[in-house]
Amino acid sequence: MKIRRRTFLGIAGLSALAVAEQKILGRVAGQGRNEASPRATGSQTARWAMVIDLRACLEKEGCTDCIAACHKVHNVPDFRNAAHEVKWTWKEPFERAFPGQKSRYAGQALQGGPVLVLCNHCDKPPCVRVCPTKATWKRADGIVMMDWHRCIGCRYCIAACPYGSRSFNWLDPRPQIRDLKADFPTRSKGVVEKCNFCEERLAAGKPPACVEACPERALVFGDLEDPASRVRELLRSRYAIRRKPELGTEPEIYYLV
């Protein structure tokens, strides 16, 4: 919204001139001030990704700490109705998360077991390709972001996502949020939402809420561009799979098996 910004600064400049304050004049001259400041979100070259250790995740049976933490910090509503359900992260049986890996005998330890799923923050996200308003887009650091101010609720992105990672607000979500948190917005009815990789926490230098909440440390978050990062080390030393890699979406959530 370059024009809006310029209009605003224009008005700001004119009013300031009217006040005729020397100091203000100086500020008006320095219009590009925000562009000059260093980025809040780490380095520009980061490529965020997550590695999930499936066995470690299965350690504590029935654990949903990560899901609870995520849904709490992001004011995710609980509709108690599968049709209108909104979820950012949840567990799916292994063969549903990995339909290509369904087998009667192979990988028996994992078959049927729960797998944590969330937005894959794909490198080539089909949801971004189809969005008619750029309400969803891929950031330089790989996070597939959403602008809930801009979403028109056409749900094309939901049709395009091969992982079922996106939810639509069929009704006003606010009354269904049990413990409202003031420092993160809720959503309005009629927009799509999904996991944002905790970009608001990353900006404050904190890890994603699910990663922090996991008692088994089964979720590892990090920068793929940094060869020394934990995620890179794990991907080097262990065998990892991704969901539906054959579709070419390049998911950036890796599962250690």
């Binding site: 801009r150 979403c151 028109i152 609720g153 056409c154 927009v191 799509v192």
Partner: peptide, 8 residues
């Protein structure tokens, strides 16, 4: 069909 028709 739109969730936010005023933003069309």
């Amino acid at each position: 069909d739109m969730g936010q028709p005023m933003r069309v």
